[in-house]
Design a binder for these strands. Structure first.
Lengths: 198, 198
DNA sequence: ATTAAATAAACGACTGGTCAACTAGTCAAT
DNA sequence: ATTGACTAGTTGACCAGTCGTTTATTTAAT
């Protein structure tokens, strides 16, 4: 068991170092060499901890979601605030991260890799789908709560509304990368306010 | 000048054959070999017609926009219909293309390449930005017309509305690829109707 | 004769992945 | 307590193949 723990720790270290490269350069432009060099680990070790580059990417996506979504989820589940306020805070938080932490240039790892690889790697596609479904479910719960309280137009189908908002955010993120400006994300936020408050 | 014409024709032929590969596989996963093999042309010729792979991509994006946006633009400029109806038709048309012609798997070349390459190729980034700005302007014109006629809520800033809709469509397209389902795009369309009709 | 165009071969660099040799530590049997 | 078998972990050389690009040369049209 000690071995297994140690194994996991080092695999996690590789992931930690590799995620940012994968995030910034995408899948195909990131080489196994890039990853092991960033981690200061010989190439052979990589294949002791991961079956393949694809396997690494799948695990990187998993780790990415855990790291990124956890704090956002806390906002969503903060019982001190009204559901609607939680939703607004949630989107504000995520947009702020996008803009500030990543200089409007990196977007979201899952979205980047998903767009690049969905057609060509089923395991990557399914992993992203799995995680995004989870995120959608969390948001939808709060939307339903808000509708029950009459804070949000109850004629909107929660699933559809949430899917639309997530997609709109996704698109704004990509345009943000293209423009290297925060305008699309700011605009998205303003529109979210408008939709949710209408 | 005859030479130049012939030159252009063959360059165009290369582009035509290469665009679909670039579209489907993305930039990094598409090799110059893939392109010349698809066109049945020896590799050396490629570099007679294009400075580099990057140059090829830039020109492919240009050609792609011309081919894809032209018919959509006609819908937008059809004076027989009201501006609002034109907008609805326009989005319906583009979504239909996305779903049917490409089996929910390919999305939009510009969006794919933009997301993959914006951070790493300034020439690609700027070309996409240029073309998308043009598209935005065309749509905005019709929105303004619709607002003047009172068909669309005049309190919405046209630029912001159009940017938001385009981004939402972009995001829906990516999710469509991830889900391999038309739901995101159908949902987008329904939401557009809701926003424009409100 | 001039020159655009076409071509195959080759370039060095790099790719994802393999592998046999090696180290260090564990544990059971002596 | 010491041994030897075993094993998790480590390592860099190496593989066959591909990458984007360049080149020298040939072909074809003017």
């Amino acid at each position: 068991m000690q071995k297994t723990l140690k194994h996991e720790i080092k695999a996690d270290y590789l992931l930690e170092k590799g995620i940012h490269i994968l995030w910034s350069k995408g899948y195909n432009a990131t080489s196994v060499n890039d990853i092991v060099m960033a981690a200061g680990v010989p190439k052979g070790s990589f294949y002791f901890y991961f079956d393949s580059k694809e396997d690494f990417a799948v695990k990187a996506i998993e780790k990415y979601f855990e790291a990124q979504f956890s704090p956002a989820r806390k906002i969503l589940e903060n019982e001190d605030l009204s559901p609607k306020q939680r939703l607004l805070d949630f989107y504000l938080y995520r947009c702020t991260i996008l803009k500030e932490e990543m200089d409007c240039k990196m977007g979201c790892l899952a979205s980047n890799i998903g767009n690049e690889m969905s057609e060509h790697s089923e395991s990557i596609r399914l992993k992203i789908l799995e995680k995004e479904t989870l995120v959608l479910a969390c948001i939808r719960e709060v939307v339903e709560e808000a509708q029950n309280r009459g804070e949000i137009d109850a004629s909107l189908v929660p699933q559809d509304l949430v899917a639309f908002l997530e997609d709109a955010g996704k698109g704004a993120m990509i345009t943000m990368k293209e423009m290297q400006s925060s305008y699309p994300v700011d605009n998205f936020l303003q529109m979210v306010n408008r939709v949710l408050f209408k």
